[in-house]
Design a protein around this nucleic acid. Structure first.
Lengths: 214, 214
DNA sequence: CATGCTTGGATAGTGCCGCTAACCAAGAAG
DNA sequence: CTTCTTGGTTAGCGGCACTATCCAAGCATG
């Protein structure tokens, strides 16, 4: 398959495909001669993957390259490989460690993990970007003066844990190990916008149920 | 409070505050004379709100202006006002209506709402951006060849509905109607990154539980 | 009162990002 | 032998979130 056909079948312009090749998101085609390269189904699939990550997952191009690098790295174990890929995803900016709200949020997050018994997550608190993002988000709400019962955060966490269980069950259902790794990363990236959309739909539904359209 | 003090207390540079004033994210200060303007606590709070939306919620500046416009619009009822604000949030791009995966995803989404009995959401399917985003996300996964039991999507939706119930309970706990509207929008914007962070943490935890660190 | 500093407002510029248009020489097609 | 198409290279574009610079008006000090 030539570049033009790859473009047609994927719906991505040749210029953009060339850009992805340049950026290393797509392995080069098999060079037939100086002016022709051949691409196969694997390229097509990879291209769709890249597009989904960029358009649906809103992952920056440079990050997609990094994430795919981890996915392709056969040397690592599953948890590490998944972790490496997930940790490359864009995260909230580093919090200011001196800020009082940040310190309070950190305490709240630590208590949360303890209460939940997430022993593994607790090992990662100093390094996991997800933990850091949680602290930033909680600190932002606290800074705006919102107070809540610790039970609330706990409830959210339990819900998201159940979502994670569904994610990983789905991953395990994949046939090959390579597919499982890809699904784990892709799942994490594509399930997020799906959950977000469902969340907003659910808010609309619940708001309309409670208050009608007034 | 002068601009310099507003900057110091919020941690936002004066240049950036001027930019927000220009962009209409912040109402102008009370003009004292040709070279001095006074800002009050309300400005400080608003500025923190804007920062949270931009930095934690990753909402584009133009969208923040739009969302705040709806929040400040006393003429609308609660559901409409919340809806208007939520609908202004960035969404996934318009799907290609001719694509087979998009059509399949639309059917799946419709069945989902029917099964859940989300009667209100079903009224909104043609116009709600959240519905559109859901379709795009589902279509992207289908395009990559992933198949799943309809039960899976249903489970995710039930989880997010429970999250939405928690959200709205929290909103109802606010004292004034103005606060409730603001909380509803802010909640929607700031809870999302929090849920995302919890989701990723939960995935790390669950993956480590199942497979260890190998 | 003079001098120098600070203030807030306006304008233009910066850096990054995701493309995209234009060009090019090598090769295929008729 | 033209004429068209190919894939690779380069430079540019448009949007975004700031940010550096300039400016005239005021305030503060000797």
């Amino acid at each position: 398959m030539r570049l033009a056909e790859l473009s047609e079948r994927s719906g991505v312009s040749t210029a953009t495909i060339k850009y992805y090749l340049r950026e290393g998101l797509l392995p080069p085609g098999r060079q037939i001669n100086a002016t022709t390269a051949a691409y196969d189904e694997e390229h097509l699939r990879r291209l769709r993957l890249v597009r989904a990550m960029i358009q649906v997952g809103r992952i920056p191009v440079a990050t997609v390259r990094e994430v795919l690098g981890h996915v392709d790295d056969d040397a690592l174990g599953r948890t590490i490989r998944l972790g490496a890929a997930l940790w490359a995803l864009p995260q909230l900016p580093e919090p200011d460690a001196d800020d009082e709200h940040v310190r309070a949020a950190r305490t709240e997050a630590d208590t949360l993990l303890e209460t939940l018994g997430w022993a593994n997550a607790r090992l990662l608190t100093t390094i996991s970007p997800a933990y850091r993002s949680l602290v930033v988000a909680v600190a932002a709400m606290r800074r705006l003066g919102y107070e809540w019962d610790p039970e609330l955060l706990l409830s959210y966490a339990r819900l998201m844990h159940r979502a994670a269980v569904l994610d990983l069950d789905f991953v395990e259902a994949q046939e090959s190990e390579a597919e499982r790794i890809e699904t784990a990363v892709l799942g994490a990236i594509l399930v997020e916008p799906m959950l977000q959309a469902l969340h907003r739909l659910a808010q609309e539904e619940e708001s309309a149920r409670r208050y009608g359209f007034e």
